[in-house]
Design a protein around this nucleic acid. Sequence first.
DNA 1: GCCCGACCGTTTACGTTGTAAACGGGCCGC
DNA 2: GCGGCCCGTTTACAACGTAAACGGTCGGGC
Lengths: 264, 264
Amino acid sequence: MDEPRADADPDSPEGRGGAAAVMPAAPPGSGRAALDRRRIIGAAVEFIDAQGLAALTMRRLGAHLGVEAMALYRYVPSRENLLDGVVEAVIDELYGDPDVHLEPGHGWQDYLQRLAHGVRRIALAHPEVFPLVATRPPAAPWVRPPLRSLRWVESFLVALIDSGFNQEAAVSAYRAYSSFLLGHLLLEVSQKGVAVNAEDQPEGVEEAQEAADLSQYPTVVRLESLLSLDESAAEFEEALENLLERLEVVLREGRAPRRGDHRD
Amino acid sequence: MDEPRADADPDSPEGRGGAAAVMPAAPPGSGRAALDRRRIIGAAVEFIDAQGLAALTMRRLGAHLGVEAMALYRYVPSRENLLDGVVEAVIDELYGDPDVHLEPGHGWQDYLQRLAHGVRRIALAHPEVFPLVATRPPAAPWVRPPLRSLRWVESFLVALIDSGFNQEAAVSAYRAYSSFLLGHLLLEVSQKGVAVNAEDQPEGVEEAQEAADLSQYPTVVRLESLLSLDESAAEFEEALENLLERLEVVLREGRAPRRGDHRD
DNA sequence: GCCCGACCGTTTACGTTGTAAACGGGCCGC
DNA sequence: GCGGCCCGTTTACAACGTAAACGGTCGGGC
């Protein structure tokens, strides 16, 4: 069971080394491993990946670390702050990804491609965490999900400006890129979540009743197999390429991608 | 304060009649208004809009309705189910929107435009509810947020197929459309949420410290005013038009928008 | 006219949650 | 060797979601 497939998604966790996790610098002989903020947050990520966000409780997380709940409060001021830390830790995995670079050595398109796939890899590795990445209120208005890190925003803007984008175009590209990633990845992980929930209760009774309801929606029924196909990887790639092409036009025309209404 | 501006966003709540709310059919002389599922869900939407999702408690919602918490359980099996109802009620506001039609009378582009703006109006009217719309696990894999209603999925597919899209193209368009809406609107409401939170604590101390941190990100600092500009309406419009153009090409070429790699 | 069961909101109760506060033990420098 | 500090535990409490029992207020059958 669970063997890697030939046509595996290059961003899926199985397609790579396996645990691309946050890895709290493991215990190098430290006996039982001392508690500290990083270890706690790492354990929280693990826990959410395994049990889901709703199951994360201070007491349960404590138990997972072999400690009482209150011990966590010496390193983490509150559960809310812990969740902020979880979000930060997860997107910080980008720094450890050898395929994503802070500086564009091979052009801005290569840079954006690598960055996008890096974020997608994170989303797929932590499907239960990603909705948190998507919805937690950002620290500042211009730090947008899912790229919620000043360092990446800076990197992004510099990369594009250095490649010839003017300021307005770079900022505009940042926004378009953010919504592209957010929409595609949130949809993808939410769909994945449904898939695993669905194989939990194959009861039969509910299925029949649900299918009966469907009689009012003949087109949905007719296209059900098409609709159920998971082509997320291809769609992601296609939409990303389309976005890059759009940005290329913007760059070549040297304008901000404003209301240009060339409708032909 | 709070007066409508000249360049008002046509999808913003102030730009239209005001409360586009769910309106639980008001009390037509029924004294104190009987409890029922619709009224409870309507009150929940109101409550979340006003106080935020985290503040919604069975006891508080009961109090808001002049009733004890346990009374709600006669009409709603659980808080989780109540939230599902909230999501459903909010997207069902689409049916009451006179500018959105279930059937495309003026072509598929008009149909998609109206639908998109209808959803955007809902997102802006209920910014605290929209993340719920975006992240709650859908009932079936092909019911995607934010258009989480079989009736609208059916309507969407029929509209496109009747307009000449083949089945694959219609399904593909449904996916692209969903992620477009999800990404743009989630980003927009999350940004709006930060804006209102930001004007709560203008302390000065934190601001200075935060600004100090920014010294490492000179480009972000330099572009701060550009980054803070809210051009959501224009960006939404532009991305929507781009999507429609893409779909138009797909339609004209009579292909499914698969891996076509014409890279020129 | 009376009574009875159905409806529907209240009361009470329980286990779980996040977190404040007091506690105590083991290790360190003096 | 001993006082203080670091850090995990204990105890405590208010608030939560919800199960169960309760009671009042009806409308209809005898």
